[in-house]
Measured scan of single mutants.
Amino acid sequence: KELVLALYDYQEKSPREVTMKKGDILTLLNSTNKDWWKVEVNGRQGAVPAAYVKKL
């Protein structure tokens, strides 16, 4: 499985998103959308802005 690093804090704004903190390591589930990537963090799945994460 592919991992990404959170470059910034992000507070979810809808139920389809997830909150992450700078430095979090997230499991990347889907990166086909260039703006929003689906990730899993702390057992929750949701979208985060692609510009806020970097593939490891």
Score class of each variant (00 low, 15 high):
Gln11Ser: 11
Tyr8Trp: 11
Leu5Asp: 01
Thr32Phe: 10
Thr32Asn: 13
Leu28Phe: 04
Leu29Thr: 05
Ile25Glu: 03
Trp37Lys: 00
Lys38Gln: 15
Pro15Met: 09
Arg16Ser: 14
Met20Lys: 01
Leu29Ala: 03
Lys22Arg: 12
Lys38Ala: 12
Tyr10Pro: 00
Asp35Glu: 13
Lys55Arg: 13
Asp35Met: 13
Leu29Trp: 06
Asp35Arg: 13
Lys34Arg: 12
Thr27Ser: 08
Leu5Pro: 00
Glu12Trp: 07
Leu3Trp: 14
Met20Asn: 00
Tyr52Leu: 14
Lys38His: 15
Asn30Ala: 11
Ala50Lys: 07
Ile25Gly: 01
Glu2Thr: 14
Glu12Phe: 08
Gly43Thr: 05
Val18Cys: 09
Asp9Tyr: 05
Leu5Asn: 01
Thr27Arg: 12
Trp37Met: 04
Gly23Trp: 06
Leu26His: 01
Val53Lys: 02
Glu17Ala: 07
Gly43His: 06
Lys13Gln: 14
Gly46Glu: 04
Pro49Met: 04
Leu56Arg: 02
Asp9Pro: 06
Asn30Phe: 07
Gly46Asn: 01
Thr27Lys: 11
Pro49Ile: 04
Leu7Ile: 10
Gly23Tyr: 05
Ser14Met: 06
Lys22Pro: 03
Glu40Gln: 09
Gln45Arg: 12
Val39Arg: 01
Lys38Arg: 14
Asn30Pro: 03
Glu12Ala: 15
Lys22Gly: 04
Tyr10Gln: 00
Ala47Asn: 15
Lys55Cys: 11
Lys22Gln: 09
Leu56Lys: 03
Val41Tyr: 12
Lys1Arg: 14
Thr19Leu: 04
Val53Asn: 00
Asn30Arg: 07
Thr27Cys: 12
Asn30Gly: 08
Tyr52Cys: 14
Leu5Ile: 15
Gly43Met: 05
Leu56Gly: 03
Tyr8Cys: 15
Pro15Tyr: 10
Thr32Pro: 04
Asp35Trp: 15
Trp37Gly: 00
Val4Phe: 06
Gln45Thr: 13
Thr32Ile: 11
Tyr52Met: 13
Lys21Arg: 13
Ala6Arg: 01
Thr19Ile: 04
Gly23Leu: 03
Asn42Lys: 09
Gly46Met: 11
Leu7Gln: 04
Arg16Gln: 14
Val41Arg: 13
Glu17Met: 06
Ile25Leu: 09
Arg16Met: 14
Asp9Trp: 05
Leu26Cys: 11
Gln45Val: 15
Lys1Glu: 10
Lys21Gly: 04
Ala50Pro: 06
Leu3Asn: 05
Lys54Thr: 12
Arg44Ser: 05
Val39Ala: 01
Leu29Arg: 04
Glu12Arg: 14
Pro15Trp: 11
Val4Gly: 14
Val48Glu: 01
Tyr8Ser: 08
Asp35Val: 14
Pro49Tyr: 05
Tyr8His: 11
Ile25Thr: 06
Ala47Glu: 15
Arg16His: 14
Met20Gln: 01
Ser14Glu: 07
Lys54Asn: 05
Val48Met: 01
Asn42Phe: 09
Arg16Leu: 14
Lys1Ile: 13
Leu26Asp: 00
Ala51Cys: 15
Asn42Arg: 11
Lys13Tyr: 06
Pro49Ala: 02
Asn33Phe: 07
Pro15Ile: 11
Asp24Ser: 07
Lys38Glu: 15
Thr19Ala: 07
Pro15Thr: 10
Gly23Lys: 02
Leu26Pro: 01
Asp24Met: 14
Glu12His: 09
Asn42Met: 09
Asn30Gln: 10
Val4Tyr: 09
Lys34Ile: 10
Pro15Cys: 12
Gln11Arg: 11
Val53Arg: 01
Ala51Ile: 11
Ala6Ile: 03
Val18Ile: 14
Ala50Ile: 03
Arg44Asp: 03
Leu29Asn: 02
Lys13Cys: 12
Asn33Ser: 10
Glu12Thr: 10
Tyr8Gln: 13
Asn33Ile: 05
Ala50Trp: 02
Asn30Leu: 09
Asn33Ala: 09
Ser31Arg: 10
Lys54Glu: 12
Asn33Glu: 11
Asn33Pro: 06
Tyr52Glu: 02
Leu29Ile: 14
Glu2Leu: 13
Lys21Asn: 09
Ala50Arg: 10
Thr19His: 04
Ser31Phe: 07
Thr19Met: 04
Val18Gln: 03
Glu12Asp: 05
Asp35Pro: 02
Pro49Asp: 02
Ala6Phe: 04
Asp24Phe: 06
Asn42Asp: 12
Tyr10Phe: 08
Glu2Phe: 13
Gly46Phe: 13
Gly46Arg: 05
Lys13Ser: 11
Thr32Leu: 11
Lys13Val: 08
Asp35Asn: 13
Met20Ser: 01
Gln11Met: 13
Ala51Leu: 11
Asp35Phe: 15
Asp9Cys: 06
Val41Leu: 15
Ala47Pro: 02
Ala6Asn: 00
Val18Pro: 00
Lys1Pro: 13
Asp35Gly: 09
Thr32Cys: 13
Trp36Ile: 04
Lys22Val: 08
Met20Asp: 00
Thr32Arg: 11
Gly43Asp: 06
Glu12Met: 13
Val39Gly: 00
Val39Pro: 01
Thr19Asn: 06
Asp9Glu: 05
Lys22Trp: 04
Trp36Asn: 02
Gly43Pro: 01
Gly23Val: 00
Val4Ser: 03
Leu28Gly: 01
Arg16Pro: 05
Leu28Pro: 00
Ala6Gly: 03
Lys34Phe: 08
Pro15His: 10
Val4Cys: 14
Glu17Phe: 07
Glu40Thr: 06
Gln11Ile: 14
Leu7Val: 08
Leu7His: 02
Gly23Ser: 02
Glu2Ser: 12
Glu40Trp: 08
Glu17Ile: 05
Val41Gln: 10
Glu40Pro: 00
Tyr52Pro: 00
Leu28Gln: 01
Ala6Tyr: 02
Ala50Glu: 03
Ala51Asn: 12
Glu40Lys: 06
Lys13Met: 12
Tyr52Thr: 07
Gln45Gly: 07
Tyr52Val: 06
Leu3Ser: 07
Leu3Cys: 13
Val4Ile: 07
Lys54Phe: 10
Ser31Met: 12
Lys54Gly: 08
Trp36Met: 07
Tyr8Gly: 05
Asn33Gly: 12
Leu26Asn: 00
Tyr8Lys: 13
Ala47His: 15
Glu40Asp: 08
Gly23Gln: 02
Trp37Cys: 05
